[in-house]
């Protein structure tokens, strides 16, 4: 499960230069063998390192972003994706908000 948080400068025309902030959190399970080495094979995995989100748990993540002093309009987007395997992921929930700053 992956949480992505981005902030984009909407006044910037070139998409490649729009990104002002980007961060990510990942929840997953690491399988390890008896020598504490990370493994993928079910026959190799004997224990786990549990980096998942536990049942009945609400987790809080906080992101602080400081932009440059000439930034006027920022679009902040939060997406939560679930990966059924390493290759296939779907966006589960998302939220987006545009902020306008008054420059003095």
């Amino acid at each position: 499960m992956v949480l992505d948080v981005t902030a984009k400068n909407l006044d910037e025309k070139e998409p490649a230069k729009q990104l002002l902030f980007s961060d990510q959190r990942i929840w997953w399970e690491i399988g390890k063998d008896l020598h504490n080495r990370m493994r993928y094979g079910a026959w190799q995995i004997k224990e786990i390192v549990d980096l998942t989100l536990q049942p009945m748990e609400t987790i809080k993540e906080r992101f602080l972003m400081n932009f440059d002093t000439d930034i006027e309009t920022v679009e902040i987007e939060v997406t939560l994706s679930y990966f059924i395997n390493g290759k296939k992921g779907d966006m589960v929930h998302s939220a987006k908000k545009t902020l306008a700053y008054e420059l003095d």
Binding site: A7, L53, P55, E57, V74
Partner: peptide, 20 residues
């Protein structure tokens, strides 16, 4: 003044098992 923002995200596991 520096344009800034705080983003707080709350993710709830409503199932009966760990995710994923």
């Amino acid at each position: 003044w520096i344009p800034s923002a705080v983003v707080n995200v709350f993710i709830e596991n409503k199932t009966g098992h760990r995710i994923p």
